[in-house]
């Protein structure tokens, strides 16, 4: 019976669906999925109380691979879907999943405003510095000299710095993770979900197909040498001066989440027309 199953739902496997992921062998996103299910199990949340929302891209396939409610929408708009859902259903746990193209390029404007709006949800971006689903075009986080068919000789453009932008725009929790460390990532996700307001977790998740060089990320990442700060100035210095492979929770703010009161009618419906009466 589902009731019994839910009561015992504290094993990661209970949060995994029976759908086989269509990611390339070796893709970092498999480990992100593992981190999701471990985090949900540790939180002990019933799967039907969690909604995983996404846009378009390899990473955005993740909702259907969980046993939670899922939403796989259009490209770049997942944060808007998440905000509408969470504001009207504050009882749910909302996790929005995205990639560097979905989140930082086509969805860039929503990223700024989601940080600023500070709705209580968790935003996970699986960043592989490339468009994988469309076979290897540069994303906003691709290095300027990286050569692709669409950008021969590289874009020459300075990469987007998502953590700095999140901090400047008002995100309430900022962390960087590496997909190859699923236990550590799961622990960060647990804290991100528990933290009130908008939590942003950037997960470095290698694309072994179009960025085989990223297999070396496992040698570059290192734990952040400091504890999380609640001082935005300190966090800004830390984020702007680190090497991009500094793993851990980097900022934990205390802004009040945006949560309009809903659900309680204060007047009868028939009251509303009174202002029109002559």
């Amino acid at each position: 019976m589902s009731t019994a199953k839910t009561q015992l739902a504290c094993k990661p496997a209970d949060y995994k669906s029976d759908i086989k992921p269509i990611w390339c062998p070796g893709c970092g996103d498999y480990h992100v999925l593992m981190s999701f299910t471990r985090a949900f199990a540790e939180l002990g949340l019933p799967p039907e109380q969690i909604v995983v929302v996404s846009g378009i891209g390899c990473s955005s396939r993740i909702p259907a691979y969980t046993n939670c409610y899922g939403f796989h929408g259009v490209h770049g708009r997942s944060l808007a879907v998440g905000a509408g859902l969470k504001v009207t259903r504050p009882d749910l746990t909302v996790v929005v999943a995205s990639g560097d193209g979905d989140g930082y390029s086509i969805g860039g404007n929503h990223f700024l405003h989601a940080c600023r709006r500070n709705v209580d949800m968790t935003y996970v971006v699986m960043d592989n510095h490339i468009y994988g689903m469309t076979k290897g075009q540069p994303s906003p986080t691709t290095e300027p000299e990286f050569d692709t068919a669409l950008s021969p000789g590289g874009t020459g453009l300075r990469p987007f710095h998502p953590l700095v932008i999140a901090l400047a725009s008002g995100a309430n929790f900022i962390a960087r993770c590496f997909s190859g460390e699923p236990n550590e990532t799961a622990s960060v996700l647990v804290e991100a979900i528990r933290h009130p307001g908008f939590s942003f977790v950037e997960i470095l998740s290698p694309c072994v197909t179009f960025r085989p060089d990223e297999k070396n990320w496992k040698n570059l990442v290192h734990p952040a040498p400091v504890v999380a700060t609640d001082d935005p100035a300190k966090a800004a210095r830390r984020i702007m001066t680190d090497d991009g492979f500094n793993i851990g929770i980097l900022y934990r703010g205390d802004r009040k989440p945006y949560a309009p009161e809903t659900g309680q009618a204060l007047v009868e419906l028939s009251e509303l027309e009174k202002e029109f009466e002559l």
Partner: peptide, 25 residues
């Protein structure tokens, strides 16, 4: 007044996706 809410979105793309999220819920 009737227990609902209005959100001013950052653009129309967000607006319609927000209402889709709310309705999904």
């Amino acid at each position: 007044k009737v227990g609902g809410a209005l959100l001013q979105a950052e653009d129309e793309l967000a607006a319609i996706n927000m209402i889709i999220g709310a309705s999904y819920g």
